[in-house]
Each structure stands twice: as structure tokens, then as C-alpha cells.
Design a binder for these strands. Structure first.
Length: 476
DNA sequence: GGAAATTTAAACATAC
DNA sequence: GGTATGTTTAAATTTC
């Protein structure tokens, strides 16, 4: 098995929602965002130097996906679900739907998770104490954690089986005749391919170094909309497959790197399990190995609102309880109680006001999150106020960011009427507005990445650079 | 436009 | 015989 395996049964949940609310309030009152920002930055920097051996971020991102997209989302047709956001044939116009809310702000039935079946199966198996599961339990795990499939056509089970059979990452375990599990075999992760799966998961859309995300660049072409205008599920679940799956199968072949394991067997059909992940990505995408695998992934509540609320509560709870003092959490509090061993990796255990604020606001903006009741939870209003009063960006220097954000906010709300400006400036202003919106979305996404222990400063820097160029152009 | 890749559907075989 | 599981093939679609 892989380098780090979470001890069986090491799961737990965060503190109660009440304590979360109190802790959050206290955090807002007592903590300087700048301190947390610096601490977080330091932690993340250290995290980057360590090899990723834990997939805890994936659990966290799963929670965050739940909080943002998988629950309470707008209705999506089966075709759209299956194939991304494909336009119906009746409306060939490729123009974006202006009325379509952002992915994480939309409402309606649950949406397909942005993980390939391979990733889902991998997570399911890795989440099993014995690291092996029968197909039936894999179904169950997926259903439990991704309610989308509860109402999805049953074909997904076929896809699961298809993946198990076709993907060499998965292998059947010789069934012990004395062990009656009914029909079928136990499935496990092939140790030879486990790392491949991990690397592939790191290419999921919520990983800041996803190949889909723009690389840090000063070029305006690295438009922010490339990675947060497009809903994650849109660029992940077009029929062409996911980024993660692409890496699994070697689909991503731009700038190919030498295979990490030359000569490794590939998919039996396509020859494609082997990853070709640039080392840069691996290094920068690494996180602190702290809590082992999937320490915090939890079944989702049934209520769409409560799902989101619970996920946010849970994430916040961990931040507040583990707090900024736990820059490193190499020794998580051991607990056999699955209700208590709710741990996050070290880098994630840090947070800032901005992270929490923007995370909540990302859920609450446009009123899509209304489950935070006053006195018990952080209310929508409270969050929005905090969002405006404090810098949301955790990247230092906070003072500059504060000014930057205030400038953007001011420009966005008190802007001179556009029609009084020259055409060139109008265009620049329009672009600026768009990027401000993108900024807001990205901050929300960035906060989620922070929650998931990801580093987004690079992308933020890229955006700032882009904005700077836009401003310069406008000034010209 | 073609190659490559993934999802989905379907057919079929096997095991319980 | 029914159902679940496992294997294989092919179509559809997207990305590069």
C-alpha cells in the first residue's frame, strides 16, 4: 500500500455547530486577519515543501464541493449532467447564459460530482478500513457521499463496474472462501497504481494547480474567467472526461513529461493509466502529510440546505478548534471515535477571517445560503459585513490587499457612469467589472482551496498582474 | 480533421 | 430463474 495509510476507523466530526458559531464570532472579534494570513502563508509554504502523502485535502474539497455545488443546486438536465453543460441542440447559440448563476451559487437538485468514476472508486476503497470493498459497498459509498447518484440513472453503476474492470488501478482481491461477502469479489487499489490515482486526484478542479487553471502569468490571456467563470463541473464533466481521469489515462499530453514509471503497464485497452505529471505540479501541489487518508469525509446530510450548512459548519469547526496554533499537525489527536477524529491537514487548519468570510459569503451571496440563523450561526448579513470590512485574501501583505480590495469594491459600486468615459476606458472598465466579479468568485474558490489546504496565491498573483495590466491599459 | 480519452449504454457471461 | 457482478464492445462527445 501507499506511503501513508490512515489507520482504520480514524474518523471524527468537528465540533457542534453552536461552538462553531461562537468560535467564529470570537475569531472575528479577537483575531487579526493579517496574523492569520501570515501564519497561513507560512504554513502553506512549509506544506509545499513536503511530499503529498495524504489525501485529506480531497475529503475537505469533497465537503466543500458539497457545500458549494453538490447540494441544493439548480436543476440540470440529464444531458447536461452527463455531458457537462452542453447546449441543447435546439439552441445552437454558443453565447453564455447570462441568467445562469455561478456553479456554487446555483440552486436545484444535486449535481454530478467533479470526480471521475476512477476517483470516486478510489476514494471509496481508500475510505474503507480494509482498503478493499465489494462493488456493492462502492456503490454505497458513492451514494452516501454524492447524493447526486441517488437520483441519477442507474447507468452509473455500470460505469463503476466498467471502471473496475477496465482500470488497472483497481484489482480484484482473491476472495477468501471462508469469507462470505455474497456475489462478486473485493476490489482494492493496486499499490503500483495508487500513486497514479493520488496524482490524478491532485488534478481535480479544486486543486489550484489543475492544468485547467491558468499558470501564473503576466499575460492578459490568462484570463481569470478561464478558471472561475467556467463552473468546475463544466470543464470537468464534459463528456471528454475529467482532468483527473485524463491524467490517469495519459490524456493530457500537452508538454508531456517522461512517465514517472517507465514501462509500467497501461490500460489494457488504451494503454493509459500511467500518469505523466510534470514534477512541478507534484511539488507545488503537495501538502502536508498529517492525518492520513480521508480523515474528514463524511456522508452528506439529506437536506440541501443542511448539507451545505453542515459542510461549512464542519469546515469552520475544524478551523476554529484546531485553530491557528496548529501550524503543523503531524500528530493528530488519535481517536477511535469516528465522531471525533475529524481532522484536517495542517495547512488547512489555518484560516483567516477572509477565508471564512469569503467561504461563507460565497455560499450566502445571492441568498443561496440561508440556513445560518442569527445567534446560532453566522448570519448572511454578518458575513457580508465582514467581507467588506476585512481583506479576504490571505496572501500577504494584508494591508496592500485591503487597499486593493477596497479600491476594487469602490470601483465596482461607486464607479463613474460608464457612458461618460471614452470607449477605450469604457471597455477597460467593463473588463474591470468582469474581473472584479471574477475576483469575487475566485476569492470564494480560493477560500475553498484554502479550506482544502490548497495554495492559491500564485493564481491570485496572476490575477492581480492581469488587473494591473488592465488598469494600465485604461490609464493609457 | 484526426487521434486520444472518458462516459455511457448495451450485450453477454458468470456467480450467488 | 432472478439478480448481482464482471467483461467487453461500441457510440457519443470533447480536448488537443
Amino acid at each position: 500500500m501507499g506511503p501513508v495509510v490512515m489507520p482504520p476507523g480514524k474518523k471524527a466530526e468537528g465540533p457542534s455547530s453552536g461552538s462553531v458559531a461562537r468560535g467564529l464570532s470570537q475569531l472575528y472579534q479577537d483575531t487579526e486577519a493579517a496574523d492569520l494570513s501570515l501564519a497561513l502563508s507560512a504554513s502553506l509554504s512549509r506544506a509545499e515543501d513536503e511530499e503529498l502523502t495524504s489525501l485529506s485535502w480531497l475529503h475537505e474539497s469533497t465537503d466543500l464541493l458539497t457545500s458549494l455545488g453538490h447540494s441544493g443546486l439548480r436543476s440540470v438536465s440529464p444531458l447536461q449532467d452527463a455531458n457537462g453543460s452542453r447546449e441543447p441542440s435546439s439552441s445552437p447559440s454558443s453565447s453564455p447564459e447570462p441568467s445562469e448563476p455561478p456553479y456554487h451559487l446555483s440552486t436545484g437538485p444535486s449535481r454530478k460530482p467533479p470526480y471521475s468514476f476512477s476517483c470516486l472508486i478510489f476514494m471509496a476503497i481508500e475510505d474503507a478500513p480494509s482498503k478493499r470493498l465489494p462493488v456493492k459497498d462502492i456503490y454505497g459509498w458513492i451514494l452516501e457521499h454524492f447524493p447526486y447518484f441517488a437520483s441519477a440513472p442507474t447507468g452509473w453503476k455500470n460505469s463503476v463496474r466498467h471502471n473496475l474492470s477496465l482500470n488497472k488501478c483497481f484489482k480484484k482481491v482473491d476472495k477468501d472462501r471462508s469469507q462470505s461477502i455474497g456475489k462478486g469479489s473485493l476490489w482494492s487499489i493496486d499499490p503500483d497504481y495508487r500513486h497514479n490515482l493520488i496524482q490524478a486526484l491532485k488534478k481535480t478542479p479544486y486543486h489550484p494547480y489543475s492544468p485547467r487553471l491558468p499558470k501564473p502569468s503576466t499575460s492578459p490571456s490568462a484570463s481569470p474567467q478561464q478558471y472561475h467563470r467556467v463552473p468546475p463541473w463544466q470543464h470537468m464533466h464534459k463528456t471528454g472526461g475529467t482532468v483527473a481521469q485524463s491524467y490517469l489515462s495519459g490524456k493530457i499530453r500537452k508538454k508531456p513529461s517522461p512517465p514517472l514509471w517507465p514501462g509500467s503497464p497501461l490500460f489494457r485497452k488504451n494503454g493509459g493509466v500511467l500518469l505523466q505529471v510534470p514534477q512541478r505540479v507534484i511539488q507545488h501541489g503537495s501538502r502536508v502529510a498529517a492525518q492520513g487518508l480521508f480523515p474528514v469525509i463524511r456522508p452528506l446530510p439529506l437536506s440541501p440546505v443542511s448539507k451545505r450548512t453542515t459542510a461549512v459548519r464542519s469546515a469552520l469547526g475544524d478551523y476554529l478548534t484546531r485553530g491557528k496554533n496548529s501550524l503543523r499537525s503531524d500528530s493528530p489527536p488519535p481517536s477511535d471515535d469516528q465522531q471525533e477524529d475529524h481532522t484536517y491537514s495542517s495547512s488547512q487548519s489555518l484560516n483567516t477571517k477572509g477565508d471564512i468570510s469569503s467561504s461563507l459569503s460565497s455560499c450566502s451571496t445571492q441568498g443561496s445560503l440561508s440556513a445560518f440563523s442569527p445567534g446560532q450561526e453566522v448570519t448572511h448579513t454578518e458575513v457580508k459585513e465582514e467581507q467588506k470590512d476585512f481583506p479576504l485574501d490571505a496572501t500577504p501583505p494584508p494591508s496592500q490587499l485591503l487597499q486593493h480590495r477596497r479600491l476594487l469594491w469602490t470601483k465596482g459600486h461607486l464607479r463613474t457612469p460608464a457612458d461618460t468615459l471614452p470607449l477605450k476606458k469604457r471597455r477597460a472598465e467593463k473588463l474591470l467589472v468582469k474581473e472584479e466579479e471574477d475576483e469575487e468568485m475566485k476569492e470564494a474558490a480560493g477560500s475553498l482551496l484554502h479550506l482544502a489546504g490548497m495554495r492559491t496565491s500564485v493564481n491570485k498573483n496572476a490575477q492581480r498582474t492581469c488587473k494591473k495590466e488592465v488598469k494600465e491599459e485604461a490609464n493609457d
